[in-house]
Design a protein around this nucleic acid. Structure first.
Lengths: 343, 343
DNA sequence: GATTTTCGAGAAAATGTTTACTCGAATCCT
DNA sequence: AGGATTCGAGTAAACATTTTCTCGAAAATC
């Protein structure tokens, strides 16, 4: 069944059917009704590929994420899907798993399916591979930083705000010895978070301690390893901030293994505020970065490029501290804030 | 740049280029080389929409999941993506969030993009909506149960094996009072799990206690609520099995809130064995159902339908117990298995 | 060596849309 | 009222492929 069938049934030309479907205003209301009736009766819907072929527009946005199994990303994907579909776009999700081979496949898939724009929501970026997209003038959106070029937008995350809130929170509780487990150092965003941390530390008059700045990799295992490293040192910080929640969960786990009580012996702050943070034991204090905002901004940016309505180059995403129970007074402060029961 | 450009460059006809790309065996090796060279030099790749349009094959498989934010699903999606892409298919993922409105949108998206098959990996199924897919002869795969029709395959999960292992494990530890938090009762799979549980219980000579069979909804909140219900009763079981890991994590959380130690006061077993189970506090004993197996079987089933190579109607997926530390002797057994330190 | 068969490459139709162009009718202006 | 203009619907070209058919040349048969 195709548009011709509908045309015959409605006694109009195929062009009229097409115009009706695409809501071209010149079509007579009476005919439009005939067409819509025919469409409903036949349960017809247009063939996307034919449409895409002739119009040169696939109606698909690509979304590249680091790894779909990190709970941060599903929440992002969900948001992206929702707002994309709402605006009539389909999405093509692909995860790189930090593997260059997969990166290549990813890009290739995007290219083959002729996506109209790609949101690169991974934190590590393989610049040379993205060239292929840029070459073909595919609009792109990045988090934090990307090539400065037309057709490219940036989602600037205000790491500083949330991280400063976190540091101040810890400082207010009396912590002076605060560690940080960063993401992979080659990642700009990981660097930015670390930078925000040390700067916030200085603002609070606390000198950063290099021995407590550990490089993680944004995974559970990375968090566990980093904690081991911390435990192996001669002095332990009383609090540790993490570059993401998975890392923080790894820390929680290793602390439990090592018999360290959180927050009595060690306060922990995560970053992202994934759903799971709420039910960790203890519930994880974390810095929230809204996946919905991120997704919304990404789709908006992409849309504004393809439908070129004054494309904005930068969107800003803010972060804020969510205090739960993985942070408390440092050991020796002679107090324990942990409530007996809560929500 | 299109196939014509390649044809000119290679000095052959477009038909030959097409045949070369599609590896039709009749094309002369020498010409094929010329074509491949041209393709490489031009960095050409075929237009998927045109291809799909004429061949009537989109090369896309749909994947419908319940909710992408339940960690079970991302792992499944990842597996599905991997094996689909490996076989030259693209995937279109959509999540229903248990919302009939979204179900409808889901199906519509699948239909519009002309998917060649759909894996319905959600546990609740909206039969009437799926009619639309069946009508158009789209091959389908379901978990557990679905309409008995040609073009439909089933992934039969052997719940019994894993659940029996779980019950036996608990019984061996000395538990006689075992609760179960099921999924929504209208879900066949939830029912199947509950069934497997009560049967296993009987096999161990333990009479099932209706007051300890609580209906959850496969979410964190459901697990929390179910535990509250359990706590409100006059007798507490010494162990509780859950229909999925999210529920179990909710139980862990609520137990922590209520000051119940796991496993000293209450043993907990999950189902699915999501990645996160390993790092729960304490690490969660769970019944594993391999996402990779599931994904693999789903794609295999779909492929065998579209490439109709003797489509198999049923695939069986097994489950097995993974013992961690959320299970131990029941209170009063005067022993504590919890190790001082571990991995 | 002539006729038939096989083989492989090219020409062209077909796929389901959109959209520029065409063209008749209706409206408008003088 | 008659010509110009506007309006809206239909015709057909275009999109990038695949695939059927065609057809010439080479191979095989007698």
């Amino acid at each position: 069944m195709d548009i011709r069938t509908v045309a015959e049934r409605a006694n109009v030309s195929v062009a009229t059917v097409s115009r009706t479907i695409n809501r071209v205003p010149t079509v007579n209301a009476k005919m439009a009704k005939r067409v819509w009736d025919a469409i409903r009766e036949l349960n017809y819907f247009p063939n996307t590929q034919a449409r895409a072929l002739v119009s040169g527009r696939s109606g698909v946005f690509g979304l590249i994420v680091s790894e779909i199994t990190n709970p941060f990303f599903p929440e992002l994907i969900q948001g992206f899907e929702d707002v994309a579909v709402e605006n009539g776009y389909e999405i093509l999700v692909s995860s790189t798993n930090y593997d260059p081979k997969r990166w290549e496949l990813c890009i290739r898939r995007m290219l083959e399916r002729k996506v109209e724009g790609v949101a690169v929501m991974t934190f590590g970026i393989e610049e040379p591979l993205l060239e292929q997209l840029a070459e073909r003038n595919v609009p792109l959106v990045f988090i934090d930083s990307g090539p400065d070029r037309s057709q490219v937008s940036l989602l600037k995350v205000d790491y500083h705000h949330g991280i400063r809130q976190g540091v101040q929170h810890l400082a207010a509780l009396g912590h002076r010895n605060i560690g940080f487990i960063s993401g992979p150092s080659r990642l700009r965003s990981a660097h930015a978070r670390l930078e925000a941390f040390t700067q916030s530390l200085r603002e609070c008059g606390i000198p950063p301690q290099p021995e407590w700045m550990i490089e993680g990799d944004h995974t559970l295992e990375g968090g566990i390893r980093a904690t081991e490293q911390l435990l192996a040192g001669n002095r332990l910080p009383t609090a540790v901030m993490c570059s993401n929640d998975m890392t923080a969960i790894g820390v929680l786990h290793k602390a439990y293994r090592a018999g360290l009580r959180v927050p009595a012996d060690l306060s922990v702050i995560g970053f992202d505020d994934v759903q799971m943070a709420r039910v960790m034991i203890p519930p994880l204090t974390s810095i929230q970065m809204s996946r919905v905002d991120l997704a919304h901004a990404a789709v908006t940016a992409l849309r504004s490029h393809v439908e070129n309505t004054a494309p904005q180059r930068e969107y800003s995403i803010d972060t804020r501290l969510v205090v739960r129970e993985s942070t408390g007074y440092p050991p020796g402060a002679m107090q324990d804030l942990r409530p007996a029961d809560g929500a």
